[in-house]
């Protein structure tokens, strides 16, 4: 559904996209992760036919975004990051207008249908200008779904929403993504983990990782990290843990807890627990630490700049 090959985009002297290649198949939900300024919005704007690339090709729903932009736009639903809306229209008027532009027959019915899909059916006749941020975002989402597109491109669809609304939007994405291709960008790894089939990590205009969320986490960690806390004095705790076979990188933390690693597949936790108790300590907590998004980025960008294969 989406095939991107060697996409390059320059804004004057600044290269925003440095030869990006990836694809997304039908029915796949692909997450686009990256820090601000990485090139997510630029990529999406090229895929939606908003702007042409400087070089490279992008084929969306079978049409080239450069030569057949109009055909691409007919088949793509897009929610821009800024969620632009015509605030002087009511929700249903706005959606009917957008439906008319897409030459959808029975535009008014389709507008109501889209509003129902995002749970705004009862606010159809209210002015969009009076909506809360979350509601505006849902109207934007409804707009992108009006023509039942084959490809959905959403730029940060959950940013700024409250937890209930985030869950609602994620549900819509999951539902819609069952038989359509969805590409959406986010900062939140856990969100990507919950919904995406695959995740692309982009930084400074280059894709530095492409994998399923689970693989990405274990690939970056390589090992499992655990933090250990005991009641009272933790003197000598790190030595006690070091003695256990299979532990690596044992460090004493500032708050008298000990952090250690063990390689995946050789779970040393039961032995560590036993050793700690036998050494006379009162074990009160032992929990794993996952890699945060920052750590994954750092790890991957360091790999990237050191030239190692990611």
């Amino acid at each position: 559904m989406i095939q991107v090959n060697g996409l390059i985009k320059d804004y004057g002297a600044r290269r925003a996209l440095n030869s990006i290649t990836f694809d997304a198949k039908q029915g796949e939900i692909v997450g686009f992760l990256g820090p601000n300024g990485a090139g997510k919005t630029t990529t999406m704007r090229i895929l939606t036919g908003y702007m042409p690339p400087t070089d490279g090709t992008a084929i969306v729903a079978g049409y080239d975004v450069g030569d057949e932009s109009l055909e691409v736009r007919k088949r793509v639903g897009y929610l821009p990051e800024s969620v632009p809306l015509y605030t002087d229209m009511t929700a249903v008027e706005y959606l009917k207008f957008m439906a008319d532009l897409r030459q959808i027959p029975n535009a008014r019915d389709r507008a109501y249908e889209a509003l129902e899909m995002v749970n705004l059916g009862d606010r159809a006749n209210n002015y969009v200008g009076n909506f809360s941020k979350g509601m505006k975002q849902r109207v934007g989402l409804a707009q992108s779904l009006l023509h039942r597109p084959e490809v959905l491109i959403l730029d940060e669809p959950t940013i700024g929403l409250d937890p209930t609304q985030v869950v609602e939007v994620r549900n819509v994405i999951r539902e819609v993504g069952k038989d359509r291709t969805v590409l959406f960008s986010t900062h939140i790894l856990s969100e990507a983990q919950q919904i995406c089939d695959r995740v692309l990590i982009i930084n400074k205009g280059t894709i530095i990782a492409e994998d399923t969320p689970e693989n990405l986490q274990s690939r970056v960690l390589g090992a499992e990290r655990v933090i250990l806390k005991v009641r009272g004095d933790a003197d000598g705790l790190d030595d006690a843990v070091k003695k256990v076979k299979g532990t690596r990188k044992v460090t004493m933390k500032g708050d008298e807890s000990v952090e250690f690693e063990f390689s995946a597949g050789q779970d040393a936790r039961p032995q560590v627990a036993k050793a700690v108790i036998q050494a006379g300590y009162e074990l009160i907590e032992m929990r794993p630490i996952g890699a945060s998004l920052e750590e994954i980025f750092l790890e991957l960008t360091q790999d990237n700049s050191a030239g190692k294969k990611s």
């Binding site: 939606t48 809306l85 532009l101 707009q143």
Partner: peptide, 14 residues
């Protein structure tokens, strides 16, 4: 100014 131009330029209209 409001950004709705992005909607118009990504809609299937010339």
């Amino acid at each position: 100014k409001t950004g709705t131009i992005e909607l118009m330029l990504t809609a299937p209209i010339r």
